[in-house]
Nucleic acid binder design. Structure first.
Lengths: 195, 195
DNA sequence: TTTGACTGTCAGTACTGACTGTCATTTGGT
DNA sequence: ACCAAATGACAGTCAGTACTGACAGTCAAA
């Protein structure tokens, strides 16, 4: 979290992201944000005009948005366990990259409309990819053919749940860490879905 | 949400719960809450003294807290699929009953400490029960014996994810509803964990 | 040296929101 | 009808907070 050698506006954006994720939009003052960034409140307003625009700028700047469809069509090897592992890891990578943004969009949904959509666009895309993957796999006879959408949904929900549970720094179920969970949970689905 | 024939304090508690769940503690004014309850702001303060105490009272009043260990020891029939179905349904029942409370504890964690713990106490208890159930089941030879904790955790995370996804009124993945998900997801685990 | 971009300080404005006090009014029980 | 408790209407206090304006300092480029 050291932003000592960043430009002023980046320091402000980062400070805003961290503080708003922790205490909510209404729970943080512009003075607090500026102080955290090591700058004066005045500078904040000079750069961004308003508190709202500051948050929006932070979202725009730090929202990780990347197409991944092509990536997947190349990486999939049509082995159920291996591919599920790839999907799971990719999912957690995306979610972790956008961790703060997701925290904010959870707390502030209803007040800052549109934020939730943006943080969930890519996971949604992954669900789509996975469903189609399941359909193709069952056509190849490498998987049971029933309910591919629901199987994909269940898999994604499991990973979503694990991520959410982890969001506030591992408070609940502290004994279990992410890596072994990914490994084992993938095995469960690979075993259940094999023909 | 019609609270027309309730007492004043109950109307206030319900209004507070609904509004705070929707807009966050700092996003709602005492005037708003009182108006929503059809009462004057003055009455709110006469009854509860402060905004904080109002929220705490709402938590105490509406937090569904019930022991369930005995319940389970009676209801389990030692058939994997049937019992997983019971656990899953119980989980969603508890979570839905406390839906608003959970929404609040998510948004306000970090500001209102202790709330999160209370909403997660019972789900945590369920994880414990399920782990022990898996251990016993594998001793009976009705289940694969590896990693019972992780299997239980994966199952709970899947349900937690589905619930979280549903929290803001079915916005994402709108085509999928809860009941079929429960049925199918239970089948997945039953299939994966059978010996 | 001069200029311009950037930042800080400080005082101040406009508004919001939690909370109080006072007094009139309503309501429910006897 | 009468009383007491609950409620409302209204004005007001006080602290906080987003945001502005005026002015001054720093520093690098021209």
């Amino acid at each position: 979290m050291d932003s000592s050698k960043l430009g002023s506006s980046d320091r402000l954006l980062l400070a805003a992201l961290n503080l708003i994720a922790a205490k909510g939009y209404n729970g943080v003052t512009t003075l607090e944000i500026a102080t955290e960034a090591g700058l004066s409140e005045k500078t904040l307003f000079r750069q961004f005009g308003s508190k709202q625009k500051l948050l929006e700028a932070a979202f725009d700047r730090y929202h990780y948005a990347e197409e991944m469809k092509k990536l997947f069509s190349e990486k999939l090897v049509w082995d159920l366990e291996e591919d599920l592992l790839l999907v799971s890891k990719t999912y957690h990578e995306i979610m972790n990259r956008n961790r703060k943004l997701i925290q904010i969009s959870l707390k502030e949904e209803g007040q800052l409309p549109g934020f939730r959509e943006r943080t969930h666009k890519h996971p949604l895309q992954l669900l789509d990819i996975l469903t189609n993957y399941f359909i193709t796999m069952s056509e190849k006879g490498k998987m049971i053919p029933t309910n591919p959408e629901m199987h994909a949904f269940s898999f994604m929900m499991m990973n979503f749940g694990a991520f959410m549970n982890d969001l506030d720094s591992h408070k609940n179920y502290a004994t279990i860490s992410l890596e072994p969970f990914i490994q084992e949970s993938v095995k469960i689905f690979a075993r259940a879905l094999q023909p």
